[in-house]
Design a binder for these strands. Structure first.
Length: 564
RNA sequence: UGGGGGAUCGUCUAAGGGUAGGACGUCAGAUUCUGGUUCUGACUGUGAGGGUUCGAAUCCUUCUCCCCCAGCCA
């Protein structure tokens, strides 16, 4: 029916391939991505999507559903439903119209509950939340049964109907599975199946006042949709007996198979919705789309391509071991992608004035610059060169180390796509001692592209012409946290206490080459010798360019400098 | 000290009785009008002890460490 994947890359794909081979689940592969619409998606969800959509896509008849797990109206909202779909599409996945909501099955779920009551496998309990907790026992001691556990089937049926009819207050009754209060697995100690919530649901409105729990709704939703492989994270491992219990006792036709894998952790950031939400709410970041966040919206605004995120997810693999992936892995993926795609441009982040003493005062030359050395098809552009330029402040040192291959008194460098210049003088502020400008002379015979221009110099600098450059705001992003694992609380420090105060550095006096004047929001560039940047899609105005640094270029010099 | 999982280079991840491989990273070279890219080379690993075997990361055994679970969250 389906064609097995060429060669399984992980234990889940191996299992699925075996199932297809053996005819299990009718040799079908149907997965699902089941977000709860109570927050925005992050790169951890991307891993799950790459697995679920990716795996289904490896089989001719494979299918991956999008299912909103909207069983708790207290925290969920329509806004998230729309935003999540947008993020999934952006990441490059398509549910082919297979859009489901757990709430669409509320009636059917209710009937399953009635079925369980009739089988004496579920009962209505009047115990309060605190009492249930007290009856549950502990990790090492069994629980004790609720007095209501022996209520008659008819009474349970009537009470459950009245719960639905809205006759009771929140918390007055719950429906519980009748399993085993002595089970060593706490999830099997008569778990709650339904609770009363007199709140408006974002899809079903006032239609219901009792809602199924995850443990009841999830397996049945999987079964109703015909999901063959229900992939979830490790913390649900000990819910699997309950998952199977529900499907077995409900006597369903399709018994989905739950398989667990380790969730994604990235160092120097946090991944839990709770923590992400707290960062947003407390104002430590500007919103869910803050470029410092590992949310899909944040990464997109930061300049990450969806392809790079997918590549990253494929490379980190899928396994059961708890792990923390290094951010360098993600950064490698985006550099690799952008190196091939992003047009180059010159931008001076922290400008230092350079005057070419022997260059004619009013002369302007249009110099040719290639748009991407990795891809000749991207062509070239003209860049204006004149007597007064800006270079990067850090590209000049008055007293350079011998390995500093940049501009210094008496030293020569090439200006990219232009001439070799030599520093002849340094002008300083008489009071502060700060360097105001640097004077140089140029060698007219060294113009780029000319036959005599083969002369070698140690360094090449990027630059812009002061008269032609555009002003721009440039935001340099760094990791949000100073600690590799902000989650570990061993020394008592809360994750909010290791926030990186330098996670955002805004440069408001940067200059970029004039060709960037009409750069569109979201457009990505490599600023030569600096890194990859994108035009901010929120704060950029027609005459006010704002760039976000996606990731810096690898910086060998910075490493050398550290060891000096 | 109940139950459920897990332990392989610094980090992810393969190999399931037969040479421990890949990616990221790091280091060293080469190339380079980006200290980028690219290329070459090197680097470091089977949690510990016993056992079975010609041969063990893999099988058996004892131990150690780590993660998850006591929501009417998912």
């Amino acid at each position: 029916m389906s064609t097995p994947a060429a060669s399984p890359r992980d234990f889940i794909r191996t299992t699925v391939a075996e199932d297809v081979q053996s005819g299990r689940h009718g040799s079908c592969v149907v997965t699902r991505f089941p977000p709860e619409p109570n927050g925005h998606l992050h790169i951890g969800h991307a891993k799950s999507m790459c697995l679920n959509f990716g795996l289904a896509g490896e089989y001719a008849t494979g299918q991956c559903h999008l299912r909103f797990d909207d069983t708790n109206p207290c925290k969920e909202a329509l806004e998230y439903v729309e935003s999540i779909q947008e993020d999934i599409r952006w990441l490059g996945f398509d549910w082919n119209g297979q859009l489901f909501f757990a709430s669409d099955n509320f009636e059917q779920l209710y009937q399953y509950a009635v079925f369980l009551i009739k089988k004496d496998k579920a009962y209505v309990d009047s115990l309060s939340a605190e009492e249930i907790k007290a009856h549950r026992g502990t990790l090492t001691h069994p629980g004790i049964e609720s007095p209501d556990r022996t209520r008659s089937i008819d009474d349970n049926l009537e009470l459950f109907a009245r719960m639905r009819a809205g006759e009771f207050d929140d918390g007055q009754y719950v429906l519980r599975a009748k399993i085993d209060m002595g089970s060593p697995n706490i999830n099997m100690r008569d778990p709650t199946l339904y609770r009363i919530r007199h709140v408006t649901h974002h899809r079903t409105g006032q239609q219901w006042c009792l809602y199924p729990t995850y443990d009841f709704a999830h397996p049945l939703s999987d079964s109703i949709e015909g999901i063959t492989h229900s992939l979830c994270t490790l913390e649900f491992e000990d819910h699997r007996p309950l998952y199977n219990w529900v499907l077995k006792e409900c006597d369903v036709a399709c018994h989905s198979q739950q398989i667990e894998f380790a969730r994604l952790n990235l160092n120097y950031t946090v991944m839990s919705k709770r923590k992400l939400s707290a960062l947003v709410t407390a104002g430590h970041v500007t919103g869910w789309d803050d470029p410092r966040l590992p949310t899909l919206k944040g990464l997109r605004r930061r300049g990450y391509t969806s392809a790079s995120i997918r590549t990253f997810c494929e490379r980190i693999g899928v396994a059961k071991r708890d792990s923390i992936v290094e951010m360098a892995q993600l950064e490698h993926a985006i550099r690799e992608d952008l190196n091939l795609q992003a047009p180059r441009a010159m931008a001076v982040l922290r400008p230092l004035r350079v005057i070419i003493d022997n260059y004619p005062d009013d002369q302007v030359e249009e110099l040719e610059a290639v748009n991407n050395p990795e891809d000749p098809r991207m062509g070239s552009r003209k860049i204006p060169f004149s007597k007064v330029l800006y270079i990067e402040q850090e590209d000049f040192r008055e007293q350079p180390h011998k390995k500093f291959f940049r501009l210094a008194p008496g030293q020569e460098v090439r200006l990219r796509y232009a001439y070799i210049i030599q520093c002849v003088n340094v002008i300083k502020d008489s009071e502060t001692g700060n360097i105001i400008e640097v004077h140089c002379t140029y060698d007219p015979s060294t113009r780029s592209g000319q036959s005599q221009s083969t002369r070698k110099v140690k360094g090449t600098l990027h630059w812009v012409s002061t008269a032609h450059a555009l002003e721009a705001t440039i935001r340099l992003y760094d990791s949000l946290f100073l600690k590799a694992n902000p989650n570990e609380d061993s020394d008592g420090t809360d994750y909010l206490e290791c926030l990186n105060p330098q996670s955002l550095v805004t440069l408001s006096d940067s200059r970029v080459e004039p060709s960037l004047a009409y750069a569109l929001p979201g457009a990505r560039f490599q600023f030569e010798r600096q890194g990859y940047f994108c035009v901010d899609s929120v704060d950029t105005l027609p005459n006010k360019l704002v760039f976000n640094r996606t990731v810096p270029l690898r910086d060998t010099w910075a490493k050398i400098e550290k060891t000096l």
